[in-house]
């Protein structure tokens, strides 16, 4: 599904190299976790894949089903089936959550040459999915993320993910700022979306999220590269020993 090969990325403004030859592959239907200490380049990886401005790819490639992501605009990547759940979802006053989400759903459908969703269909679908995530009607009516608590913002991200039905989901530190209950809601939402045609790249600092969202593969990232990959036990090792020993061992 997602294939990243020898990716080198620098910040455009500072001429600072962040990713230094990162490679990983997420096959269809699998959940991969990327863990790593602060400053290892985890968020940069998610931004570059989603197409944020300000980064220059100097070497390497990132493809989804064989198509180069790096040549596409952010909205084209989204229409192709890529979704990034933000660490800090953005507040947009004056724009209704529903208006925004319906515009996004239909823009993606239009880009793929599919028929747009009628407002009746959309409302029905969104109400169903919102219920599972315990998002009430009042929250749906409010402006995008405005006045939402940290947990509500993350649930809103998962609601968007559920409505947009992407094939490749990248989750950037989705667990940050979540209490235990919110973490369970968000994880349940993600687990409900797991399936043979959908893959996840879960970027996280801590192992605890991975108790709820069981990964197939865990990658350890350091200084812009993947330094070690393994099964879920790798995450437990990080939790017990910290990154120090692991990174020293990986050299």
């Amino acid at each position: 599904m997602l294939k990243i090969d020898n990716l080198h990325v620098k910040l455009e403004e500072e001429d600072k190299q962040i990713l230094k030859g990162l490679s990983l592959e997420v096959p269809a239907g699998q959940v991969h976790a990327v863990m790593g200490p602060n400053g290892s380049g985890k968020s940069t990886l998610s931004y570059v894949l989603a197409g944020r401005d300000g980064y220059a790819v100097t070497e390497g490639s990132a493809t989804m089903d064989g198509e180069s992501l790096l040549d596409m605009e952010p909205e084209q990547r989204a229409a192709a089936g890529l979704f990034l759940a933000f660490q800090y979802p953005v507040e947009i006053p004056g724009v209704g959550n529903m208006t925004f989400l319906r515009t996004a759903v239909n823009a993606q459908r239009k880009a793929r040459g599919e028929e747009e969703m009628s407002s009746g269909e959309f409302l029905k679908a969104v109400r169903e999915k919102a219920k599972d995530l315990q998002i009430d009607a009042e929250m749906l009516k409010r402006p995008v993320n405005v006045g939402f608590s940290g947990g509500e913002k993350k649930r809103n991200e998962i609601l968007q993910m559920a409505m947009l039905a992407p094939r490749m989901c990248i989750m950037d530190e989705t667990d940050s700022g979540l209490d235990v209950d919110a973490m369970r809601l968000v994880s349940d939402g993600v687990n409900a979306l797991r399936g043979p045609d959908r893959s996840f790249l879960v970027i996280t600092h801590y192992q605890r999220l991975l108790n709820h969202i069981q990964p197939d593969v865990v990658h350890i990232m350091s200084d812009g590269r993947i330094v070690k990959s393994g099964g879920p036990e790798l995450a437990l090792q990080v939790e017990e020993e910290g990154y120090g020993d692991l990174l020293a061992e990986a050299g």
């Binding site: 197409g51 401005d53 952010p74 006053p93 004056g94 515009t103 996004a104 402006p143």
Partner: peptide, 23 residues
């Protein structure tokens, strides 16, 4: 970037952000 990452085309995203500014 947030709007575009959800598939909203750039021109439409500007409309949203202008409305947001005027709110």
């Amino acid at each position: 970037f947030y709007l575009r990452s959800r598939g909203v085309p750039k021109e439409r995203a500007i409309v949203f952000l202008v409305l947001s500014f005027l709110a």
